[in-house]
Write a protein that binds this DNA or RNA. Structure first.
Lengths: 282, 282
DNA sequence: GAGTGGTCTAGACCACGTA
DNA sequence: ACGTGGTCTAGACCACTCG
């Protein structure tokens, strides 16, 4: 009509909708105009209205919930702090009575307010590693664990320095916040180390690093890598993402004093649900 | 035709194209089938073919270069290692003759092979902070700097604990690899500190942390935050991204011994061009 | 059955860079 | 001039879920 004054129609519609969301005019949980309504109100074809909504979908601002419509998403982020993971140094195993709840909460970095407000099911131990700290109270964190023996993916094989056919014990963990998946993280341990130990137990309470240290494989050094990319379809499904969304892929590799890699953790974090934090000193 | 055996037509086409790229059948720089060719070969409408290509565009696997076609992208990642930044501790300023090239290369974490192979223009100092280390040789790194006084965005204001109307000295830096932007990072310094100092100089050689230390604002602690999201249209343009792509937004805040925030760096990293690395010890 | 998002089609016009 | 991607239209059918 008027040419293209600023950008495409799709983008202008997306912009309007986005503005209403980020400014709080339409609040989390509220329904936004659906494709056919937008089509009429903005005088565009349905495909155009849908393209605009698809932008917000990918940005994680809305979810599609047919046949009810599109709804504004609650996207308060969680803190993800790998440094809070405890890496027992190779000294005699501490015999203190309880490395229990108090220590655990501290290590996870729960603030007082949060520790008080957030209900943590399946045990706080569930989220000990890789250390989710809830940054707003009143939300429910759950964790699930599935342990098995498997052939690790190539990226894990090379980091653990395993042969192609060599298996590993895999501890697959999934964290849910208010019922929605917010993190999957798979811990790979060489079969030669983990075989026959408590590491094979399907128990969220097992502190992998502690056990590794007891087995004589204490980790001195951990290397953290983060890659940022779009979620694969498989990940999108596992994480119940509304679309292919940006994720951070975290690969942590733990090395012993002899520089042997004894543990690889592969975590996938939906981008809009996390803030990754590190602290350093000069 | 056959219903929907696995997924949508668009996704199946995208899958084929993706496979050919990740397996190396079609190599970086090569042209892939264009929309009209795909349309014929796969017996779909042009919109469907385009949707499939749009998937790969968003994944960063291809670029559109009209009127020539779509081309496979070179996406070897760079290392991004915030920890390699030197944070001078508050001790007497070292008077050593040269904190020069050798040290610089070490701090940036260039491997020997890389240091030898990569041509670094505009001076190695240009990439001292926030520490890009080239992970493959033979590529050209450049950096540009633009210094000015501005009102920082809200996220920076709150971290620096500034009033709404309080200005800051902004050092806007942009790094290019082989001519393509790979990083923008803006350093904000309170005007009350930086005003009238060399920090206002439009000089890539200025070591901000060193100068801050000399001015009595040595940083003891730095907090790193990473957020993962889609690029905004402005960022996409500034970074010459082919589409709205996943980016990591890095906010580093430096604190003095008195816990005063004296420096905030906001970096935007295109996701597919970087691996973010941290090292920690037990 | 009605209404939603999800997908696809067939056709059209535009902007833009190369030739 | 031509061919490219970019965008938009108008219409269609589907799967799903709710009442």
């Amino acid at each position: 009509m008027i040419g293209t004054p600023a950008s495409s129609m799709k983008d202008r519609i997306a912009h309007k909708l986005r503005a209403a969301i980020v400014e709080g005019t339409t609040k989390p949980g509220q329904r936004v105009l659906d494709e056919r309504e937008l089509m009429e109100r903005q005088n565009v074809a349905r495909g155009t209205a849908q393209a605009a909504l698809a932008v917000l979908l990918r940005e994680g601002l809305i979810v599609a919930r047919p046949p009810e419509g599109y709804f504004v998403r609650d996207r308060r982020p969680l803190d993800y702090r790998p440094q809070l993971e405890s890496i027992p140094v190779p000294r005699p195993v501490p015999t203190g009575v309880a490395a229990g709840p108090a220590d655990a909460a501290a290590a996870v970095g729960l603030t007082d307010a949060t520790a008080a407000g957030a209900a943590v099911s399946t045990g706080a131990e569930a989220i000990l590693e890789p250390f989710l700290a809830d940054s707003s109270a009143g939300r429910v964190l759950e964790a699930k664990l599935d342990v098995g023996i498997d052939r690790p993916p190539a990226e894990v094989l090379e980091r653990l320095d395993l042969r192609l056919d060599e298996p590993a014990v895999v501890r697959r963990r999934m964290c849910l916040l208010d019922g929605e998946p917010v993190l999957v993280s798979d811990t790979y341990l060489p079969y030669s180390i983990a075989q026959g130990t408590v590491l094979e137990l399907d128990d969220l309470g097992v502190d992998v690093n502690e056990v590794l240290a007891e087995l004589g494989h204490a980790q001195l050094r951990v290397s953290d890598e983060f890659r940022v990319r779009l979620s694969t379809p498989e990940e999108a499904q596992r994480l119940a993402l509304p679309a292919a969304m940006p994720v951070a892929c975290h690969i942590a590799t733990g090395y012993t004093a002899a520089e042997r890699a004894v543990r690889v953790v592969v975590g996938v974090l939906p981008g809009d649900r996390h803030v990754i934090r590190f602290e350093r000193r000069g």
